[in-house]
Amino acid sequence: MRPFQYERAASPARAVSSADAGSKYHAGGTTLIDLMKLDVWRPERLIDISALKEPRMTRIERNGKALRIGSMVTMAALAGDEGVRRSCPVLTDSLWLAASAQLRNMARLGGNVLQMTRCSYYRDTSYDQCNKRAPGSGCAALDGSNRHHAILGTSDACIATYPGDWAQALIALDAVVEILGKDGPKSVPFATLHRQPGNRPDVETTLAAGDLITAFVIPDADWARSKYLKIRDRESYAFALTSAAVALRMDGDAVSDVRIGLGGVATVPWRATAAEAVLKNAALSEDTAQQAAEAAFAGANTLEHNAYKVELGKRTLVRALMDTAGMEA
């Protein structure tokens, strides 16, 4: 860790006006402090927003079908919200299955969606090659150890996996991100928040310097038939090898609406639109679920150790679809 300046923001507006390219916001700190200790992030200034009490940043509010979740809500608080669990279990499942109890108590949702990859070559500065950490230096994962790396949304410059779980639910449900920026408040689709690596893997998001996420809005959060299935090497406290966030509306056996997010397999939160198109208005069966899974992974690029994620990803999606269809609406 290198010396840095620390300040506490008195208000969201003050935080944003104080922020610049050399600063980082500090809320739960579970990613930030970790990466600072590892010397991966070297911010000159930390702006502590953890004590901000603005209702729009700290509350979970329902308005009809819409759900508005403040960015300062902890993972644990939303995971434990019984109302949200009943109306939209994919939003709470994906949090229960993430991290550990200690981390869920600390981590705020605004930071959760910005969680950084676990790519070992990114997190260990003793490796020279990492385009995400040191632009233009190369990618050691391409010919290194890549069992955990992405197969969708990759580029020749980066195959680092987006590690989060909750973001798969957000992208599936067409969430909107509310942001306070230097020019005032704005809203952007969650699907546009993260950038695929392309030739600039160091640019993770479309956020501008100083942009502060204040809330997530899910316009239609009425998905009682929804679920998050996470496949991992151990039962608790492990990152997804593959995961699927699925929400269904059924008309008899027919799928009237379907949303699919995929985790563990892509460089960014991943919406499986091709798979959704296969299922929309079709009868849900093993066959159609399998067709949807084939469509979801049609564009996969695999390397030496991660080829299994294609087959595992398909099976994960099929199982999630069949399990979700079996839920009571």
Partner: peptide
């Protein structure tokens, strides 16, 4: 191991997995 570079890759206890209570 990164076989090319001769280095241990999952050198932390988030990624070097030991059993949790749930296991």
């Amino acid at each position: 191991m990164d076989r090319l570079r001769g280095r241990y890759v999952n050198d932390n206890i988030a990624e070097y997995l030991v059993a949790t209570n749930a296991d």
